[in-house]
Design a protein around this nucleic acid. Structure first.
Lengths: 109, 109
DNA sequence: ATTATACTTAACCAAATGGTTAAATATAAT
DNA sequence: ATTATATTTAACCATTTGGTTAAGTATAAT
């Protein structure tokens, strides 16, 4: 039932720490897109985008299918589950101990 | 009402992409800890831990108070909220469009 | 067959990252 | 006053990262 392991969390959080990659993910939330289309909003070379897509794919966050000379990328919706669950679990623990061990700066005002 | 901005997300996700830092956060979920105590589980020099703590603190994920020659670190429970919300929002969007635009590989079996 | 389009790979570069050891600082103990 | 403890800062190093340009591959169009 454990949805995450260290490697998965390393990869997913690392992928998400880059704003270009987050933006690509957001674009793909509107449906599959070609590399061209994904690159359009950025002031960046195509190879740079290509690299980001490879990083995203290695981490399991996107896949692609090939159609002629185009590559259509789409999100892999379950890939973030582990990272999400890791955070949620911590937040639950923290909520339980609310105000118990956090120093004054942590207290809600 | 927006809980996150690009810089915040960059920082938080970047912090969480390192297993040592995630482990420190997990330790701090049991209450505040001195640097020594935090360093104990790791086969790593104290300055390395000190650096990680600085990174964690810069991203707003932890604070510390000083007591004598000790520094006691504790979690800053709200710091992950933005990142968490960013992920949750996407997941909701993806759930809504379930099966609509994901290519076959994405479909649940 | 030639050329244009979509995209990747290769080679390179500067800056950031995550670690090290050695020296510095601050407090506590003797 | 001296020494020990807790921790940081400084200087260094190798690796990774995120970008570039130039060249290569695959498909489509003429």
């Amino acid at each position: 039932m454990v949805k995450y392991n260290a490697d998965n969390l390393n990869d997913v959080f690392s992928v998400l720490s880059d704003p270009t990659r987050r933006s690509i993910i957001e674009q793909l939330s509107n449906g599959e897109r070609s590399v061209q289309e994904l690159a359009e909003p950025f002031d960046m070379s195509l190879p740079a985008i290509s690299k980001h897509l490879k990083v995203l794919e290695n981490a399991g966050l996107v896949t692609h299918r090939k159609e002629g000379r185009y590559r259509y990328y789409s999100i892999q919706p379950d890939a973030m589950d582990g990272a999400c669950e890791w955070m949620e679990t911590l937040k639950q623990v923290w909520a339980k101990f609310e105000g118990m061990f956090c120093c004054s700066k942590n207290k809600k005002q």
